[in-house]
Simulated scan of single mutants.
Amino acid sequence: MEKVYFADFRSGSIEDNKGHKIINLFKKAGFKSIFEKDELVSVKLHFGERGNDAYINPVFIRYIVDMIKENGSKPFLTDTNTLYYGNRHNSCDHIENAVLNGFDYAVAGAPLIIADGLTSKNERMVEINQKHFKKVRIAGDIFDADAMMVVSHFKGHDLCGFGGALKNLAMGCATIEGKKEQHKMTRPIIGDECVACGDCTEACPENCIQIINNSKKNSTSNSRAFIDYPSCIYCLNCLGSCQYGAIDLDWENKVPLFMEKMVEYALGALQNKNGKTVYFNFLLNITPHCDCVPWSDAYLVPDIGILASKDPVAIDSASYDLVNQEIGIKNSLLKKNFLEGEDKFKGTWDKVDGKIQLEYAEKIGMGTKKYELIKL
Rank of each mutant, 00 (worst) to 15 (best):
G30F: 03
L333A: 15
P205I: 13
N222A: 15
M259T: 05
R10T: 15
V59C: 03
K121W: 04
G140K: 15
Y55V: 11
G163K: 06
K261F: 07
N285I: 03
Y244L: 12
K179V: 09
N101T: 04
D343S: 02
G172M: 09
A54C: 08
G191A: 06
D93P: 00
N285A: 09
H132C: 11
N87F: 14
G341Q: 05
K32C: 02
A110V: 11
D16L: 13
T80S: 10
V278D: 02
S332Q: 08
D144K: 14
K131G: 05
T119V: 15
S13C: 11
R88N: 09
I114Q: 00
Y279C: 12
K3M: 10
I95G: 00
H153W: 06
W295A: 09
L270P: 01
F9H: 08
V99G: 01
I286W: 02
K28L: 12
S13L: 08
C242H: 04
F338M: 02
T277S: 14
G172V: 13
N214R: 14
I56T: 07
M366H: 03
D343Q: 03
I138Y: 01
G164Q: 05
K135G: 05
E123Y: 13
E362C: 04
D79F: 08
V151A: 06
L166H: 02
L118I: 15
G48M: 08
T175V: 11
A106L: 15
E39L: 07
V301I: 05
D146R: 06
N122S: 14
L25D: 00
I64D: 07
D144A: 14
F26G: 06
G305R: 06
S309I: 11
F143G: 02
E2N: 15
C292S: 10
C290V: 13
E49H: 05
N218H: 11
H94C: 11
D303G: 03
N81G: 04
K167S: 07
H132N: 15
G240V: 12
V126G: 04
P188N: 07
V323D: 05
V65Q: 04
F258E: 03
